[in-house]
């Protein structure tokens, strides 16, 4: 079983980008140290050979929870838009979008 690598500065910069967070150089150093400690501690789990154990995504074995296709009233648009930072013409207004959805 190969040991997972430790977490470095580049990793933290990469995940910060994925998570839409910006970090100062100082923060990058601080978070790298802190997160590396947690990841290193997690070696007791990450280095285990558990390939024959099925994963648990839900604590209890429940299946097929469904609702009938019946409409129910939603929210009042004015109330919804009142919570928004910026609106125009009944819609949420955002700065220009660069790039399309993947």
């Amino acid at each position: 079983m190969s040991e997972p690598p430790s977490l470095g500065r580049d990793d933290v910069a990469h995940v910060a980008g994925l998570a839409r967070l910006s970090l100062s150089e100082e923060e990058l150093d601080m978070f790298t140290g802190q997160l590396a400690r947690v990841i290193d501690h997690a070696r007791d789990v990450s280095s285990l050979d558990v390939h024959d154990v099925p994963p648990t995504a839900h604590p209890l074995p429940v299946r097929n929870v469904l609702r009938t296709d019946d409409p129910c009233p939603g929210l009042d648009r004015d109330e919804v838009l009142a919570a928004a930072p910026d609106v125009e013409d009944g819609r949420f207004k955002v700065p220009r979008i660069v790039g399309e959805a993947p």
Partner: peptide, 15 residues
């Protein structure tokens, strides 16, 4: 696989 996937399997072990 090394982190989230493995943690979910350890969850099974614990249960």
């Amino acid at each position: 696989d090394a982190y989230y996937g493995k943690a979910q399997r350890v969850r099974t072990l614990l249960i």
